[in-house]
Structures are given as C-alpha cells and as structure tokens.
C-alpha cells in the first residue's frame, strides 16, 4: 500500500503515520516531564521557604503601635462559619468519651480555651452563667482545652473558674479541624450541625459578655424550637 518514496518523491504513507505518532509521543513525554519538573521545583521552593522562615533574621523594626496584622482575630474571616461543624470525639475530665454527634438536634456552643490564656479565663465564668440560664432552652456548652499538659491542671483551673459544663481534652486532630490559631475561639453550632457563628478573641469589657449572649440568643432562635 505504501507509495514508493524513491520513485515518486512523495512521503510514504506508513512512515508519515509513524512520524506523527512519534511526534505525539514526544510532545506527551515533554509535557509530562515539564509537569514533573514543575512539581519537584515547587516542592524545593517550599522547602527553601520553610528553611528561610526558620532562620533567625535581623530586623529593622520600625513598626508603629496599632499597625494592622493580617492574621489577628479581627482580620481573620471565620473559616467555618456557615459550614458543617467538624465532627469530634474527645474525652472529658472523667475519661468519658464525648462526641459532638451526641448533641445532634440541639444548639451547641463550642468554646476552645487554654489554662495559659487570660482572655479565655475571663469569659469562662460568663459561659457558666449562660450555660445555666439557657439550659432550659436546650443550650449545650462544651469547653475544649487545648493545653498540652495533663488533665489535672485543666481540671484544677476549670474548678477554680467555677465551671460545671463539660470540659473536654483536645486530641491531635481537632486544632486543625477547627482551624485554631489563637484562643479563645468559639463556634455556635445550630441544631442542624452547621456553624452559625464563629468568633475569635474577646471584646472589651461588658461588651464581651453581651456579645456572647446576643450570639447565644441568635443560636437558640435559629431553626425553631
């Protein structure tokens, strides 16, 4: 079927087909190689960035007070707001397992705190008050400690603060699951399991307590009784 190249000067059909196929394969190999190189290069760049970040650097500090910080609580957008609250199963101070799913169908206020966090310890007595005040309306308050030490210090601190709502101990997944970067952070989880409101930090003075109560009332109002 092939046309004789030598006799006519025209390309041999079969050779043209093979040639095109070879070009196609070469292009594919080149493309894949480029992607692999890009991936490896990207990984190397990330490692270099990590090393640079770890190296102590001299700084010409000329920051003025009050400069905005892109990662401060005020600047951060609550990432989980409007989304399903990540599931968890943690252990309370008595060693009993407690899951968010245990409270399905109820409004749940999830508060992350730590013994070394002064703003956290200021608001916890408020949360105790709200836990008692709104329990008849179905509110559940859960405090999750992010301390790395043993439960004894957590238990002692919670008792000193007069907290009687459940205190749970973190596991190695929950901080990433909830995107915790600072304390306190609170998540108002509605009856459907969605994060209605997410807050970080504490407002000044009485405004802090009032703001929390206003959010709790929104949570209770959401989704009907």
């Amino acid at each position: 079927m092939a046309i004789d190249l030598i006799a006519t000067g025209s390309p041999v059909e079969g050779e043209v087909y093979v040639g095109r196929k070879l070009i196609l394969i070469a292009v594919m190999v080149a493309g894949i190689s480029l992607l692999v190189w890009a991936g490896v290069h990207n990984a190397r760049e990330r490692r270099l960035e990590m090393q640079q970040a770890a190296i102590p650097k001299a700084t010409l500090s000329s920051d003025t007070a009050g400069s905005a910080d892109a990662s401060s609580p005020e600047q951060m957008t609550p990432k989980l707001q409007g989304k399903a609250a990540p599931a968890f199963t943690l252990v309370d101070l008595d060693g009993k397992k407690v899951s968010l799913a245990d409270y399905k169908g109820k409004p749940v206020f999830v508060n992350f705190w730590a013994t070394w966090c002064e703003p956290c310890k200021l608001e916890m007595p408020w949360l105790e008050d709200f836990s008692k005040k709104y329990k008849p309306q179905g509110l559940v308050v859960l405090g999750i400690s992010t301390d790395d030490g043993g439960k004894d210090l957590v238990a002692k601190t919670a008792k000193k603060l007069g907290v009687s709502y459940p205190i749970l101990l973190k596991n190695d997944k929950i901080e990433d699951a909830y995107g915790l970067e600072y304390m306190p952070q609170s998540f108002y989880v509605d009856k459907t399991g969605k994060v209605l409101i997410a807050t970080a930090g504490i407002s000044d003075g009485q405004g802090g307590k009032d703001a929390i109560e206003a959010n709790i009332q929104k949570l209770l109002a959401a989704g009907g009784q």
């Binding site: 493309g31 894949i32 992607l35 692999v36 890009a38 991936g39 490896v40 290069h41 990207n42 990984a43 990330r46 490692r47 990590m50 970040a53 770890a54 102590p56 650097k57 001299a58 700084t59 500090s61 990662s71 970067e181």
Partner: peptide, 27 residues
C-alpha cells in the same frame, strides 16, 4: 498521567510553619 505528575510536587510539601510573633535580631 498529567494529574499524577502535577501532584508529585505536593507529596512531601511540609505544612506551613506557624507565624512567629518574636524575631531574633541577629548581630
């Protein structure tokens, strides 16, 4: 194949380091 190749660079990418709030002024 293209998808796999594109992900190769991500396999050993380390997690982002937490932000430091203190700097050492090396001298």
């Amino acid at each position: 194949l293209l998808l796999v190749a594109g992900q190769l660079g991500q396999l050993d990418a380390p997690a982002e380091a937490p932000k430091q709030r203190v700097t050492y002024v090396a001298e």
